[in-house]
Write a protein that binds this DNA or RNA. Structure first.
Lengths: 350, 350
DNA sequence: GTGAAAGCGCTAACAC
DNA sequence: GTGTTAGCGCTTTCAC
């Protein structure tokens, strides 16, 4: 009893099975056309040098002429490797994680992997949902932003048993691997810097993300160590960061006139504040010093240019990708924890 | 000959097949534990109300306790539906397409679909490669930016036979469906506006993307219609748009002193120009008028606030998603071509 | 260098 | 309401 010869009553069309929603051309079709077996087509695609040059050329020409596109769903199911790495960032539209994503994407695509991007909107529960969705798609590895995750996320990741890199912060107990920097340290460094520049009454403006909070607490520790008052802590909503910065600085100038320096969680928010000061003809840094975070494109462009903290956003992405790829290649990762550091960039605004 | 009883020589472990890289729990495992069949578990997940409440509860509790995550690869292969919609945008890090992506993502996830995002870097060949990769993953639908694509892209999409929405422009011959606006019209509208405000010698600054070029040619048509000279055409590299805007305006002021108004392809570039003028104490719009495009967050924040063109970025995403979902639900799409329009937003800069 | 057989984990169709 | 059977299109293993 041979398979599929259907030469009795079926119409002579390419054997439409159920729905014809997708490109109906399969490896089998190509194989039949080229007069080889199914598996030879597979080899031409995956391990071309294990096929006789002649056969290879013939098969390749049929692949091209028939417009054959391998079904990666089937391939992934059979091989248990999808060559997809997923990354979850709080937001993809705002620029702060853009370089990390670029670093990831470049390294991965160079090795034939694809990047699947998810956006958590700074919600741990959304992150958990994404993790489950990604595991369901059987991604080969996962990159997470931050080190704070729900217990369920950790659980899922544990049982899924795939390589994971946490990024953008440091922790003594990573889920698996880590590429980041110390947000607490960055906050402390900026606190030290501002203190040393002579500012005495400071404020911190940020979102409600845990990394921003670490920076705040680092700053606070620095100020307390110098016998200064703890900084004021203002949160801004996620959304339009520029106008959030404007509103925050307006509020500080009007209601906290004693504040002489502000550290913003993000250069875009800080830039909004600079623009507002400019509009009101408020001297920066004489009346009030303004500092940002991340050294984004906008930081050197505003007037006065923004003092900020340089972080290695791009390298975080590159390093995370390399760790993952090494693990997937079966190589050991020399150090599963990589601290990429940061540095204060002094400019005119503080 | 029953299947899989392996009670002879195998170790009593959960039958590790090949690699144990992924969560080994399968529907079969859950079914066995719950004392039901394989397919019942499937129904509990996909069509819970077709299962007796009692059975359902029991199965659900096992799903939870065993941490079962369905293999969507296998599901997609069997059902020929992945519930993934892919979208290709020129860039995800710059803010211009952010709202479109948000509109897509929100509409899709509300219907249980996931968005797979690709970045073409304004390259048609990169777009083609992404299209092939996405078809390989058997996405259920595709959203493209722009209406200009390689012949190969069109071919692949034709044979893949999946719903496609082109966006961000208009064309008389869409591949399938379309949600956009007229870039040529937007350029003409801005040209008309600037002419009507009394500017006489204009320049256009943009990237090399086809939509920017359409806006340029629309502007040119407007000026020529008013017997003005065609605008100067300057291109800037993709990358740091703010500094590109600074450089462009510097160049224009120094080498084309006769220019009295500039239309930038993007608010961020325009904002860079505004910042530069501010720094040099050049009066905007008295010495030179500056206008942007897209009405991004930054447009109202700079000083003077940017005159720009409002487009319906969010609605493009929403509309594209709805068209796709309607098609996938087997409903007809009333009008496969949707022109969402634009409008000039007059502010202080021009 | 090439092929046959088996099975990845799931859903569709049809029974019961 | 629940189960059985037969694939989805591919890769793996082992044979030739």
């Amino acid at each position: 009893m041979k398979r599929k010869t259907t030469s009795d009553s079926a119409p002579a069309s390419p054997v439409a099975t159920r729905k014809t929603a997708q490109s109906a051309v399969t490896k089998e079709d190509v194989a039949r056309a080229a007069g080889v077996s199914h598996i030879t087509v597979s080899r031409v695609i995956n391990t071309p040098d294990k096929v006789a040059p002649e056969t290879r050329a013939k098969v390749q020409s049929f692949i091209a002429s028939m417009g054959y596109i391998p079904n990666l769903l089937a391939g992934g199911l059979a091989s248990k490797r999808t060559r997809i790495i997923a990354a979850i960032v709080p937001t993809i539209s705002h620029s702060i994680f853009a370089e990390t994503v670029r670093g990831l994407s470049e390294q991965l695509s160079a090795q034939g992997y694809q990047l699947l991007l998810g956006q958590s909107n700074y919600s741990e529960d959304a992150e958990t949902a994404l993790v489950e969705a990604f595991i369901g798609r059987r991604v080969d590895g996962l990159v997470l932003t931050g080190v704070q995750h729900t217990e369920r996320t950790r659980q899922r990741l544990k049982t899924a048993n795939i390589p994971v890199v946490e990024t953008w912060d440091l922790t003594p107990e990573p889920i698996d691997m880590l590429a980041g920097f110390s947000n607490h340290g960055a906050g402390r460094a900026m606190g030290d810097y501002l203190q040393q520049r002579g500012y005495r009454r400071m404020a911190f403006v940020g979102g409600e993300d845990p990394r921003g909070q670490s920076r705040f607490s680092g700053m606070r520790d620095a100020l307390l160590a110098h016998a200064l008052e703890a900084p004021l802590y203002l949160t801004v909503p996620f959304g339009s960061f520029l106008s959030a910065g404007r509103e925050a600085i307006t509020m500080i100038l009007e209601q906290h006139a004693e504040v002489d320096a502000v550290f913003f969680s993000n250069d875009v928010i800080a830039a909004g504040a600079v623009l507002e000061c400019q509009r009101r003809h408020i001297q920066v840094p004489q009346r009030i010093a303004l500092a940002g975070f991340a050294n984004l494109d906008i930081a050197p462009e505003v007037h006065p240019a923004l003092t900020t903290v340089q972080i290695s956003s791009l390298q975080i992405g590159q390093t995370a990708a390399q760790m993952l790829l090494a693990r997937l290649a079966g190589e050991g990762v020399d150090d599963p924890v990589c601290d990429l550091g940061f540095s204060v960039v002094p400019r005119a605004s503080a």
